[in-house]
Design a binder for these strands. Sequence first.
DNA 1: TTGAAAGCGCTACCAG
DNA 2: CTGGTAGCGCTTTCAA
Lengths: 327, 327
Amino acid sequence: MEDVAAHAGVALKTVSRVVNAEPGVTPGTAERVRAAIEELGFRRNDSARILRKGQTASIGLVLEDIGDPFYSALARAVEDVARAHGHLLFTGSSDENPAREQEITLAFCARRVDGLLLVPASEDHTYLQPEIEAGLATVFVDRPARLIEADTVLTDNVGGARDGVAHLIRAGHRRIGFIGDAPQIYTSAQRHRGYTEAMAAAGLAVDSSWVTQSAPTLEGVQASLRQMLAASATAVLCGNNRISVTALRALASIGRPDLAFVGFDDFELADMLTPRVTVVAQDVASLGRTAAELLFRRLDGDRRPAERIEIPTRLIPRGSGEMPPPA
Amino acid sequence: MEDVAAHAGVALKTVSRVVNAEPGVTPGTAERVRAAIEELGFRRNDSARILRKGQTASIGLVLEDIGDPFYSALARAVEDVARAHGHLLFTGSSDENPAREQEITLAFCARRVDGLLLVPASEDHTYLQPEIEAGLATVFVDRPARLIEADTVLTDNVGGARDGVAHLIRAGHRRIGFIGDAPQIYTSAQRHRGYTEAMAAAGLAVDSSWVTQSAPTLEGVQASLRQMLAASATAVLCGNNRISVTALRALASIGRPDLAFVGFDDFELADMLTPRVTVVAQDVASLGRTAAELLFRRLDGDRRPAERIEIPTRLIPRGSGEMPPPA
DNA sequence: TTGAAAGCGCTACCAG
DNA sequence: CTGGTAGCGCTTTCAA
């Protein structure tokens, strides 16, 4: 910038004014400065600007795995909002590992991101308390904060699971199973709760051998399905799309593609399988957009108490969830 | 940092030494400093550090759409390498729009990222020349740079398409079509070239009504398939996974799921459809990892001339590509 | 309308 | 082993 000033025969401050389109520069002077900028290939160093202004115009997004289509769709929605607000986006994948969540989060904090969007993996977010008190805007997405108060945007997991089960009940099923991920995962526990509530609301008993909650492996899901079928279940709700896909493979491999089936979370080609797969769809884009917009409202000075927003789900009947139980 | 120094009764510089684990501090002093850091909840401000060191320990990744599974898998591979090198990752989606590519890229440059990974959308990268000369390490991924010399990591598009067509020829097909994306897209043009070469190598004529190259819409792909079938084609190579999926839907809707079919690029559930879909799989993770590793080699001082690396593809036979032509 | 000087928070360099 | 000082490149403040 000093070089540009020398080249244009003006003071450094004048160059700054031109670069930032501040008022108070004669058109002629401005033109001379612009020419010097062009000639020297000057680009403002935002590092210095950031240091001086105390604002980085960037936000950080911590999620489980940017390579997972669910989270990448979330990231895309966040990016669009960030761009609309003139902010850049850092992303980091925690792999469901609390230590990595913290490592990435603190690295973002050290860079003084203006705001943080967090799909949490850890059970304790008190480590963020000092940052938040120091003014870091933070919004939790998809799962709530633990041990601190914070803005949160969630899917209506309980309601969605309830809808899925109610849908199977309407098709005539009474013996309905549930395969979910590990119960330590918030969304997994909530969806299990929705399943239980829907069964209770319909006055239906739940056989414990109809229910599994653990990390999805093909073998595990196969075993769960076998056990469930042995106990005469006629339908199943799967707790997330990875489980749905695994269960579909397992059903094909054990020769029972006829089990009535509802999956939580939509996935590409669900409508092209045989049978076409009925799902409870989450609105991932809305989840990301809503969270990012809330974040920017905070950055714009909104000081109201922490909010908790739930995004509704939508049941998409395609065939697999409408098959009646065998007579 | 000054506060911490005052609190611990030492000089600012000593605090800096402790924070950066530099040698030359008595354990006792270091302990006192650490206590002060803890008490004040101090976190180093990396903005200042960056300004001083001239190194941001961050890289930027510009791609078409972070929400697309292909690119999100790429991003994940890049993130892992970046993390291993202690760098943070900025991501930005260009949406295949040259102006946005440039806008995002220059924003990353203004932040003085140490390196740039680019899936280019534009036809002219001379705007990057000054940055590269100023020391910015840049690697192009999936598509080559235009009008400048630069490191590039590509998929072997020509070879992959050739393999896919040769596979159909081995199954007995002689009348093979190609549906690709717009020919302006580098990968699209290359795959078309592979198709043409394989047909020529086998001494087979290509009927112009077997070939379409345009942005994939359901209607467009449907029309292409109808035209191709009317001209007695018995097999088709699809130029990317979006086209494959669209074509599968189209074939289902026009009642011809029997056309022999090979898709370029693998996709989730390809093995669960009816028939199971044969693909030419790209190794996206390797693409991202290789590009990122090349970038960090440059950052570590490798000054050899620009490299061009091609990642091989792998044909995965699953059924749709092994169906013989009707007798 | 323009410019000079101070300083953001840190690290590099040289003294003690 | 410890401390002081200069300065990274910009914006802020105040003066001309």
